[in-house]
């Protein structure tokens, strides 16, 4: 996979966040340009919090967040940034009485797309996730996997420059997962994509970069091949595949450094 654009679409400097007294992100420094970055980590590692900061849902307690070359703290810039973001939350909520088309169209309008371009874009997004035959179906009648695909459709409808997907493959069947990875590879040509996942095979097949998080810190960053190589070189880490062993080893070394 060739990365064609080297502009820094994400630039986080010393980002910290806490909920009450519990610090959930510690001194995160991260940059990303065009391509797909897989966020791996156990539950509670801080992946969702990091994605929510990137999605401008959360303001970090400290540090600077620059997205798409703009300062996320500046109100005018924030509006510009949000026009170019696609986000699929972990807890994807929807309006059950909307049809698939109405739901994607609703968020396309909220993203301030040109009204004349909205309907063709909605059709394209729905087709890209393979839901064309459900376009006029009410959301409440869809299966969990289909709802997830609607979530992906609303995220990509504006061809975002920054696409943030929190566990997008949950509930997808194997065929849909393969289609989804193809979609990610397409998006990687012109977007900066972050995918949070527990599935190392998603990372192995669709990501250019891997970031492993543990206890609110980035404990590893590299490419899927490098993580796999690290796994091959490790004999005592848990995991069935080289990448799983690499992931376990990265987490273990991160914990050792933190303690």
């Amino acid at each position: 996979m060739e990365v064609v654009n080297t502009a820094l679409n994400v630039d986080l400097r010393d980002v910290r966040h806490s909920f009450g007294r519990t610090e959930v992100l510690h001194h995160i420094d991260m940059t990303a340009s065009t391509g797909v970055t897989g966020l791996l980590g156990p539950n509670g590692a801080g992946k969702t919090t990091l994605l929510r900061i990137l999605a401008t849902v959360l303001k970090p307690k400290a540090g600077t967040v620059s997205l798409l070359g703009k300062d996320a703290r500046n109100r005018h810039d924030l509006r510009e940034i949000r026009r170019d973001i696609g986000y699929l939350p972990q807890q994807f909520g929807y309006y059950p009485n909307f049809t698939v088309f109405e739901f994607v169209e609703y968020f396309a309008l909220l993203k301030e797309m040109d009204p004349g371009m909205v309907r063709p874009a909605v059709v394209q997004a729905i087709e890209r996730v393979g839901l064309q035959s459900q376009a006029r179906t009410k959301m409440k009648t869809l299966s969990g996997g289909m709802v997830r695909r609607v979530g992906i459709a609303q995220a990509i409808v504006n061809e975002p420059a920054l696409l943030l997907l929190d566990e997008p493959t949950v509930g997808l069947d194997p065929e849909q997962r393969v289609l989804f990875r193809g979609l990610l590879r397409d998006m990687a040509d012109h977007s900066t994509v972050f995918v949070s996942t527990h599935l190392v095979e998603d990372v192995a097949t669709a990501c250019n970069h891997v970031v492993v998080m543990g206890d609110g810190r980035i404990v590893y960053r590299g490419t899927p091949d490098e993580l796999m190589t690290a796994g091959n070189e490790t004999t005592d880490a848990a995991g069935d595949s080289a990448m799983e062993r690499g992931y376990s080893a990265a987490l273990a070394s991160g914990r050792a450094v933190a303690s």
């Binding site: 999605a55 401008t56 849902v57 509006r79 510009e80 949000r82 026009r83 973001i85 986000y87 939350p89 807890q91 994807f92 909520g93 929807y94 309006y95 059950p96 968020f107 909220l110 993203k111 301030e112 609303q154």
Partner: peptide
Amino acid sequence: ADSAWELSRTMPV
């Protein structure tokens, strides 16, 4: 109660 509240918070509107 707004099920899509989180998503709405990332919109320019």
